[in-house]
Simulated assay, not measured.
Amino acid sequence: MLNGIGYGLMLFLLAAGLTLVFGIMDVMNLAHGSLFMGGAYVAAQVHTSSGSFLAGLLAALAVVLLVALALEALLVRHLYGRDHLAQVLATFGIILVADDAVKMIWGPAPLMASSPTALVEPIEVLPGLPYPSYRLLILGVGLLVALGLYLLVNHTRVGMLVRAGASNRAMAEFMGVRVGRVFSGVFLLGAALAALAGALMGPITAVQVGMGEEILIPALVVLVIGGIGSVRGAFIAALLVGLVDTCGRAFVPMALRAVLPPAAVSDVAPLVAGLAMYALMATVLAFKPAGLFPARG
């Protein structure tokens, strides 16, 4: 369950950027997963070269922010106000370019990423329950970022400007708000969150080509369950999806072994566990079609 909460918090970092960009800017950015992948690769490379995990994390944030700045200026800015089909096609093209760029720079083989040497030893969180200290770091960072996002969006002037631009862009511009700059800042914030998630997930998952597309699907599920544009909804939905997905993979095989032969369990269990988060999404949408906490009631 701790693993599920940690996975959910990393999904939240990715889904929060997605829900801000889509819910506030009305831009469906499928390339968000590629920013996640870029953060993982840069952090792993710099950490391996320098021996400093913090240097890798900062380098990942800096590089991905520069890439996102160019992406927003050259492509995303021209997609504001366009239909979602144009946005999906354009940003899907970025996925293909990003995957090939990673192959050219790092090659097709997975890149090894290690956790910080200071966080190798486990910590006994409960009597008889040692838990990896690096995963505890992930839990702490995820919770701090969630709190920071809540305060930023709901209790700062910047958050007020963001909400104003999302609610009525024309009126906000008449009132003197530079909505274009606000939207650019939102896009960069989402990119930074994706890079942070990629850098933190690198040591506990495979840093490889296509990892951004793999995690983009659960992030979109979180976006739908939580309600588009809602940071609070993304947080709760990410925890639900993380717990359902991780606990499903852990406990479904155990339950099936009681009623099925081992050969059948090995075939059926991964399928059932993989469908768990989609079953959760279908159940939520059956009762709340707009998600748990839609930003626009």
Rank of each mutant, 00 (worst) to 15 (best):
A44K: 10
V67N: 08
G23R: 07
A59L: 08
L35K: 01
M1W: 02
S34P: 01
G23N: 07
N3L: 11
N3W: 06
A55H: 14
I5H: 03
S52E: 12
A70W: 06
Q45H: 09
L14H: 02
L66Y: 00
M1I: 01
S49Q: 15
A68M: 05
V27K: 07
G8W: 14
A62F: 10
V46L: 07
G33K: 07
L35T: 02
G39N: 12
F12D: 05
M10R: 01
L11E: 10
L13D: 04
G4F: 00
G39L: 12
A16V: 10
M28F: 15
L30H: 04
T19W: 00
D26N: 13
G4K: 02
L66E: 04
A44V: 00
I5L: 15
L18Y: 10
Q45S: 15
L35G: 00
V64C: 05
G51R: 13
H32G: 08
G4L: 01
L35R: 00
G39V: 13
M10F: 09
A62H: 03
L65D: 03
L54K: 00
V46C: 03
G8R: 05
H47V: 00
Y7M: 15
L69W: 13
M28E: 01
F22C: 07
Y7D: 15
V27N: 03
A44D: 04
S50C: 06
L2I: 06
A15L: 04
S49F: 02
L57F: 13
S34E: 14
L35F: 15
V67Y: 12
L11M: 10
V42S: 09
V27D: 02
A68V: 03
V67P: 11
V21K: 02
A60Q: 06
